[in-house]
Design a binder for these strands. Structure first.
Lengths: 341, 341
DNA sequence: TTGAAAGCGTTACCAC
DNA sequence: GTGGTAACGCTTTCAA
């Protein structure tokens, strides 16, 4: 292993001088500088990030905390984060969160010294105690898809998104509209699903449609749970004519359920999702598009600015939402049961 | 920041003793140990990974080098890698490779000291010089979806996979079968695509079907390129009745092209892919399934074993391949042009 | 402008 | 068993 001492010897200077050259100090003569640079090249010397980190108190590492990192929306956000980190010369450490205890462990670990220079937290809301710990230890944090007044964040108006999707369904003529979302009692504290549900309820109420509790179903995130929930709904005496799922992943499960039950989409059942993940266009899923990649990019940029000391204030970036109408939503047909009753 | 010295003071012992407790040395009395453990708990002390790393010469970090980390197959492999690393207490550093120069930079950087304890390289084949550097610096490396005699790897028999897919098409009755794959001249040196092409050629030859060069087309990996290549093929005077794409991603592009050209799948064009990524089942894509997640898991396990000194030898794990017949392949129809000519 | 030396937080060796 | 100390590779202060 070639160290700074080796370089110093080779160049015939003190190791302090090599360090100065390395760090671009102006207090080095031109000749000395090129001498040292030559030695560095000859020896193919690269400073130890560990030693630098220990001395400087900074690691040049950014950690990304993300629940279920293989979920399509997480991947899209990462896609936005990575290039920004790269161009800033930062190393990306990925912390996948699959259980509540992992969530807690990682949140706690964030305030430990020598860990990372900054953190991007996706879809997870820190508790007040955790936020207090961030403040006390001056830990740089940016939230994505989660909100806290004291922390910078990149967010979207989930209530509004839920409204847009539901209004689309209402305008199509649907009145029996069900909602499928993430379990709101889960220990992760995902907030977006319940906010989307609120938007759903708002629109129903303002459209004079009764909000029926048995039309609102939640389960842990995932395609399988979406499918299961939809199957229950479809087996109801009076099933919904439209289902708004709070994520595309779950909407995909809904479509699976419809297929399995022999219910045609969209003629017998309209399905709307949320996110516009990659697959959505293949299945022609009507959905609320949120700029996932941009959200990652923005978050990374916010963090870079905070790290470079450019911006010290808390910022909240709101993302644009768009309704993408594809082929899984249509006006409802006259209900089979309606004539007979 | 609380250091080992603080703990030592609090416990009223020397800092060497604290270190011994930390590292589970047997040469500590029971009483002293619990005294120290109490102090550690009281102070919520956690050793600095930087200082430990510097001293020990190990970082407890595993780097994963992956081209286009957001590609579905990369994500699936990562899904397998993550839990193994976690359970081993390792931190995951992700290096996304998007350009040849990034590839080279990261490969070179791997042999630098204090970087990571081990590396998982996905879909990238190191050059002989790079392998020599690994050997000289005793760098622990496991390859996934790439092969080198001197490096442990998790691989599949791409030639065989290409054969299986092509044979399926031949058995269906196709004789005009085209191949679409990754650019073999690209600077990444992806080998799998060309191996799959070899399997394709083998089967054609042994089936008495002429291998026509203009039926073999390659371009940089991606859906868009698959689409473009397929469009060219479809516009030929005598277009193929089946296309074997060396990846599902490209096969998806082929299907897009067929749609755009008004060519029906599978009645007018059969399409087979490779990988069985998540989307494949949605579009009913016939494909060669490879256990992507398992490949990540195996690679991580191989690396863990190598790191723990359990296994010092080079190992090559072969993955199982399965043909998944869905709805994008069917016997060819009598060719429109055949009667007229 | 440069060299020497202290110190970052830890481990491991050497005395006791 | 335990405490002190050197050393890991680097940055930065202090003299010169």
């Amino acid at each position: 292993m070639v160290t700074i001492t080796d370089v110093a010897k080779r160049a015939g200077v003190g190791l302090g001088t090599v360090s100065r050259v390395l760090n671009g100090s102006p207090r080095v003569s031109e000749e000395t500088r090129s001498l040292v640079e030559g030695a560095i090249r000859d020896l193919d010397y690269h400073p130890s990030p560990l030693a630098q980190g220990l001395k400087r108190g900074r690691t040049h590492v950014i950690e990304v905390l993300v629940p279920f990192m293989t979920h399509p929306s997480a991947v899209e956000r990462l896609r936005g984060i990575v290039p920004v980190l790269n161009s800033g010369g930062y190393t990306l450490v990925l912390r996948d969160v699959e259980t509540p205890s992992q969530r807690d462990d990682h949140m706690r670990a964030m305030t430990r010294p020598h860990r990372a220079d900054g953190y991007i937290i996706i879809s997870l809301t820190p508790t007040p105690e955790e936020v207090a710990a961030f403040r006390d230890t001056d830990t740089k944090v940016v939230l994505v898809d989660a909100h806290h007044d004291d922390l910078s964040s990149v967010i979207l108006d989930d209530v509004k998104g839920g409204s847009i999707a539901t209004r689309h369904l209402v305008e199509l003529g649907h009145r029996d509209i069900a909602f499928i979302g993430d379990d709101m009692n889960d220990q992760f504290g995902f907030a977006s699903s319940s906010d989307r549900c609120k938007g759903y309820e708002d629109v129903l109420a303002s459209s004079g449609i009764e909000v029926r509790p048995h039309f609102i179903r939640t389960a842990p995130h995932g395609r399988a749970s979406g499918r299961e929930l939809a199957t229950q709904l479809l087996k109801l005496d009076r099933p919904p004519t439209a289902i708004f799922a709070s994520s595309d992943t779950q909407a995909l499960g809904v479509i699976e359920a419809a297929e399995a039950e022999g219910v045609r989409v969209p003629s017998e059942l309209s399905v709307a999702g949320f996110d516009d993940i990659d697959v959505a266009q293949y299945v022609g899923l009507t959905t609320i598009q949120q700029p996932l990649e941009a959200s990652g990019r923005l978050a990374a940029e916010l963090l870079m600015n905070s790290l470079s000391g450019e911006s010290t204030s808390v910022a909240h970036e709101y993302l644009q939402l768009d309704l993408i109408v594809r082929t899984t939503t249509a006006p409802p047909k006259a209900r089979r049961g309606d004539g007979d009753a």
